[in-house]
């Protein structure tokens, strides 16, 4: 008598990637290429002014028009990909590392480590996310550096919560018990048995978080708290274009579309990854 194994079941379609994952990867890949090759792809420099050609609509010379300093909107968007991608990556990376470490330690060690970490987490979560980020940026002074510090100080809580919850469940899983019965040390149990299995929800969330960070980074830059003018950053561009909205809509519209497409790329990636890994967000 042979038993059915998972490998025999129809779920063997593992090699096949969800279309959302493909679409997300393609969109992100496109922006990464743009960010790397902005110098060659952009027809003009991002800060290159031409005061004789200000506020011009889309044309053959300026596909997406020019702004109030006569800067080429397309070139600024292409160069902006660098800053906005950087915000997405760094704005997620630091909270991810800090949060997972705290979550792992709090969940596995328990006791005082857990109590202190949880109180810290509760206090941080008692603030609306953006309000606390803005308050921290206020202290450090507006700028991208402050943005990263603020995101790291506030954003770790989501990861810590997810990973801690996973660790608490897995800590009593039989395979962890088996590892302890085998006489393996605490660090080995944590790194080899707990973390790789506990980190999946955090990885999926990191993609969703990247969407939020892209939106947040551009929103803060729009408010004047993130990237500073005249930097080519999409939020900054929208803020600068807002006053010319009635006459020159293109200054606002196109950077916004760029944000949407980058955010969608991460969003699709998050969905596809969740589907692939079998953890719904």
């Amino acid at each position: 008598m042979t038993e059915a194994t998972a490998a025999d079941r129809p779920a063997a379609a593992h090699v096949e990637l969800p279309p959302m994952l493909l679409a997300g990867t393609a969109l992100l890949g496109l922006w990464i290429v743009v960010a790397i090759g902005a110098d060659w792809l952009a027809p003009y420099g991002p800060l290159e002014q031409d005061l004789s050609r200000t506020l011009q609509g889309p044309s053959a010379a300026h596909w997406l028009g020019t702004d109030n300093y006569g800067r080429d909107v397309l070139s600024r968007i292409l160069h902006g990909a660098r800053l906005d991608l950087q915000i997405a990556v760094l704005g997620v990376l630091f909270p991810f590392l800090i949060g997972n470490l705290i979550g792992l330690l709090a969940g596995y060690l328990g006791g005082w480590t857990d109590i202190v970490a949880m109180r810290l987490l509760e206090v941080t979560m008692a603030f609306p996310f953006l309000v606390l980020v803005i308050a921290i940026i206020a202290v450090l002074g507006p700028g991208l550096g402050s943005l990263y510090v603020a995101l790291a100080l506030v954003g770790w809580v989501s990861y810590a919560r997810l990973t801690r919850a996973q660790v608490l469940v897995l800590k009593s899983a039989d395979f962890v018990s088996a590892a302890r019965v085998m006489g393996l040390g605490a660090w080995r149990v944590m790194w080899r048995h707990l973390l790789p299995n506990a980190v999946t929800p955090a990885v999926v969330f990191a993609m969703t978080d990247a969407v939020l960070v892209v939106l947040l980074g551009s929103a803060l830059s729009y408010l004047g708290l993130g990237a500073q003018p005249p930097a080519a950053e999409w939020g900054v561009m929208i803020a600068e274009g807002q006053q010319f909205l009635a006459s020159a809509w293109w200054i606002c519209l196109f950077p916004g579309l760029a944000i949407v497409s980058l955010a969608m790329g991460f969003s699709l990636l998050a969905d596809g990854l969740a589907e692939r890994l079998g953890t719904r967000p």
């Binding site: 039989d174 395979f175 018990s177 088996a178 019965v181 085998m182 006489g183 048995h193 299995n197």
Partner: peptide, 20 residues
């Protein structure tokens, strides 16, 4: 040491193995 004298096998065979 204790782990060389006594070992254990578990009820749910799948969850007793590290899936990775």
């Amino acid at each position: 040491p204790r782990y060389r004298r006594v070992q254990m096998i578990f009820q749910d065979p799948l969850s007793a193995l590290n899936p990775r």
